[in-house]
Design a protein around this nucleic acid. Structure first.
Length: 464
RNA sequence: GGCUGGGUGGCAGAGUGGUGAUGCAGCGGCCUGCAAAGCCGUCAACAGCGGUUCGAUUCCGCUCCUAGCCUCCA
């Protein structure tokens, strides 16, 4: 039985889909004005695993996964102006770049990736309903606001009490608002800003409303899971709940999932702090699965420290798996599924990927034992199991030999031919029992990051 | 100030009211020309102080430290 920690109730709950034939999940995606950083990679990977596992549990075609794209907001306008580039060109460019990164990381594409600019009518419709129902008002400056006090359940997600919040503690309060907590639904366009027609005048949607409109449009008023980064819990998700439930009169999402942040030097990695590493930057040094593994080593709700040491550890761990998977022959026989049970039990427990990985290591140990005892048939079977379970996490899908011989995307230093030549020379030296020369060659390669392994079947190598 | 979370062995990181996480690193052994890889064995931890309990790292309280949110943010 799958259990998921629900941010709304602050406890783990058994997950029961509204419709097991169509489990519906919405995740807040990217605002597209820059490259994705490792924090974004974490959301992508975490919910990719959730998506994969839900399909494993409920059926490959019984899940609808929506991840939106915010392609209009203040930051985008600002960046486009700075670049002297049109908003369309900017956002299209970074949507493409996002997909490049996501594909490299082995992220399964969501079923739909709705964009705010293509859902203006849905957004306007929802705002109209909110005004009609008395939850929203147009202020003297023309902006339309959601009146927070009218929505009874406000604060239920983030656990905050409006009276205790220090409104305006860190940001100036817009004076046109009735209450400091009210938030904008429709923002009037200033000169030169992009604008869409609306009953309240030309303008653009506030940030929160697009997700409410697109989620209900794509998944219905009431769906199963809503996810996103921890930083979106308040105000973004709190506001989404208010808007959606006020307008539809129905429960919005049953389960709220929030992933923890990626940290750098004890601080959250974020664009505004400027302490971020882009996905492509990291992928120059580490293979995609290394990044994925790194993300999955800690529980999705915990903070994750971005350090060289942790990435290197991830690489070592994958080397261990792929070393075990190397030189296994193909097999089509029935698999041994003893491990699958404990692997699934780990993921059933609020997607405990760290524990699931521990199961993969158990398999690896047994697999290595079998290889050592020359029980190659059974070893091959276990190899299949290892790959299959790893695949649920999007891991162990590379060719073992290629993974071990590859470094980041650009492997500088010696090319394969040069390495093989040196290995040949060393084999000759070894035949002559010229150990000094053999060791010298091994040292030379080692200095280039190449590790040699003399086995029964000859010498193999990998990039360490 | 308010609201969420954390503090586990050298490092990373799960978990549990009373035996084992796991990976890397270390130590001993097997294997090897020597290594590497692998296998076997081994060391080692639960921030502090109280309380509940036959028993607490695990439950409760307090203290200290720390992260996130209360502004755009994944």
């Amino acid at each position: 039985m799958l259990q998921i920690y629900n941010s709304l109730t602050r406890k783990k709950e058994p997950f029961t889909p509204i419709d097991p034939k169509n489990v519906r999940m919405y995740v807040c995606g990217m605002t597209v004005y820059d490259y994705c950083h490792i924090g974004h990679a974490r959301v992508l990977v975490v919910f990719d695993v959730v998506n994969r596992y839900l399909r494993e549990k409920f059926g490959q075609n019984s899940v609808t996964y929506i991840r939106n794209i915010t392609d209009i907001d203040d930051k985008i306008i600002q960046r486009a102006t700075e670049n002297n580039e049109s908003i369309e060109s900017l956002t299209e460019r970074f949507i493409n770049e996002m997909n490049v990164d996501a594909d490299k990381l082995g992220i399964t594409r969501p079923d739909q990736e709705p964009k705010a600019t293509l859902h203006m009518q849905d957004i306007i419709d929802m705002i109209s309903i909110l005004i009609d129902k008395g939850y929203a008002y147009q202020a003297s400056n023309g902006d339309v606001y959601f009146e927070v006090k009218k929505f009874e359940g406000y604060g239920k997600l983030s656990g905050r009490n409006l009276d205790e919040d220090q409104a305006g503690a860190r940001v100036e309060v817009e004076i046109a608002k009735k209450d400091a907590a009210d938030f904008v639904l429709w923002k009037m366009a200033k000169d030169g800003e992009p604008a869409w027609d609306s009953p309240w005048g030309p303008g653009r949607p506030g940030w929160h409303i697009e997700c409410s409109a697109m989620a209900t449009k794509c998944l219905g008023n009431h769906f199963d899971i809503h996810g996103g980064g921890m930083d979106l819990k308040f105000p973004h998700h709190e506001n989404e709940i208010a808007q959606s439930e006020a307008s539809t009169g129905e429960c919005f999402a049953n389960v709220w999932m929030h992933n923890g942040h990626v940290m750098v030097d004890e601080e959250k990695m974020s664009k505004s702090l400027g302490n971020f590493f882009t996905v492509r930057e990291v992928l120059k040094q580490y293979q995609p699965e290394v990044v994925r593994y790194f993300i999955l080593t800690s529980h999705y709700r915990s903070p994750l420290n971005y350090t060289k040491n942790n990435l290197d550890n991830a690489k070592s761990a994958l080397d261990r798996f792929y070393t075990a998977l190397r030189d296994l022959h193909d097999t089509s026989a029935e698999h041994d599924y003893n491990y699958k049970e404990s692997f699934n039990a780990a993921l059933d427990d609020d997607f405990n990927t760290a524990e699931a990985l521990a199961v993969l290591f158990e398999i690896t140990r047994e697999l290595n034992s079998l290889k050592a005892n020359n029980n190659l048939e059974k070893a091959a079977h276990l190899g299949e199991v290892l790959r299959e379970l790893g695949g649920m996490l999007g891991l162990l899908q590379d060719d073992a030999e290629q993974f071990l011989k590859g470094s980041g995307s650009g492997s500088d230093g010696l090319n394969d031919d040069a390495i093989n030549q040196l290995i040949e020379n060393r084999i000759t030296a070894k035949k002559e029992k010229n150990w000094g020369e053999a060791d010298r060659i091994r040292e030379e390669l080692s200095a280039q990051g190449i590790v040699l392994e003399d086995g029964a079947g000859g010498t193999s190598w990998r990039r360490g």
